[in-house]
Design a protein around this nucleic acid. Structure first.
Lengths: 182, 182
DNA sequence: GAGTTTCGCTACGCTACCGTAGCGTAGCGA
DNA sequence: TCGCTACGCTACGGTAGCGTAGCGAAACTC
């Protein structure tokens, strides 16, 4: 009942789609290019998804990195760890290259907006958990905007100012977010 | 020597291009759509620009908002003023709707990357000036990352978490940026 | 007013892409 | 082994878009 051929072609197609999205953005991820690169026939793609949008949505969905929980005992330690994790995500190909296109596409495509919301939630979740633990320990008092203050500058460097996240910057961001909680 | 017809058609074309970019993004800003909306003929467009890319670059370039200097006497007052200015930019159509697409396009188009860099510089300039004044007054000691700490969370809300910039948030961002300078 | 420039219009050629149909084949499950 | 299913291939029809050519008309310059 479970034909392995389906899973195999499906994976090849999604992998090729991700590669093309990374290299040429949404404009270059055509069904024909995906077929050519994946080795699958165009007809096979349309047997598994109703149209191009659905293929691209599945491709983007397939590479949202999971949340990276971390419990070092202090909020500061946790945030530094998250910053390094995010630095990796914002620096290495699959996800990094897709974020700008995803942000743009989310403006007009509800499905991709949901994927972006999921990606964002995955980054915020461990932060919120760490903050909750810090509140429990009496470590901080005003936990309201920590996630924004912490994640904002990191994404800003990737998307707008295009500067790397060096250690001094990360520590400064963490300190600024922490300073505002007391 | 200076025929007003050129300036008139040029403006109509760029305005139409901006409108289409706002409504449908880069994918929807086709030369034919620009011609139809502007009332200009496609041939007129190609008489003024060599190809589509050049038209879109000029269109985006034409709406980068200028820097908004502000000198309230305190760094805190200046930053709050800038935050409100940026809130307007990030909320109202022409520029706001173009930012996501511009960020994405800048990944692959050097010309649009330059436009984005200019936009970013326009936002950072008044911040840097205000920070320099504050340093001169002895108001702060470590001015290094203030622009990132200040602008990052504001853009983060527009692009990623998609939440409005309410007053409480703005004040908190400003306080966090300020707290890190001492 | 005469001459020049720019305009808009229509009509192309060309390419790329979407999504579909029909075929023969290879590989899977029972 | 046998039937079925998913496969890849080729070939379409249709649309959309880029960039160009040639025209007469309108509008600007001097």
């Amino acid at each position: 009942m479970a034909d392995p051929r389906v899973a195999r072609s499906r994976r090849a197609i999604l992998d090729a789609a991700v590669e093309l999205l990374v290299e040429h953005g949404f404009a270059g991820a055509t069904v024909e290019a995906i077929a050519a690169r994946s080795g699958a026939a165009k007809t096979t793609i349309y047997r598994q998804w109703p149209d191009k949008q659905a293929v691209l949505r599945a491709a983007v969905e397939s590479i949202v990195p999971p949340a990276a929980p971390s419990d070092t005992g202090s909020l500061r330690g946790d945030l530094v760890a998250f910053a390094h994790d995010l630095d990796g995500i914002l620096r290495t190909p699959p996800t990094s290259a897709l974020i700008p296109g995803l942000i743009d596409a989310a403006e007009r495509d509800a499905g991709l907006a949901a994927v972006l919301a999921d990606f964002t939630a995955q980054r915020r979740k461990p932060v919120h958990e760490a903050v909750a633990r810090a509140v429990g320990r009496g470590e901080i008092e005003r936990p309201e905007f920590v996630a924004d203050l912490f994640l904002g500058p990191l994404f800003y460097r990737r998307l707008l100012s295009r500067e790397p996240l060096d250690e001094a910057f990360i520590e400064r961001v963490v300190d600024a977010a922490l300073a505002s909680t007391r």
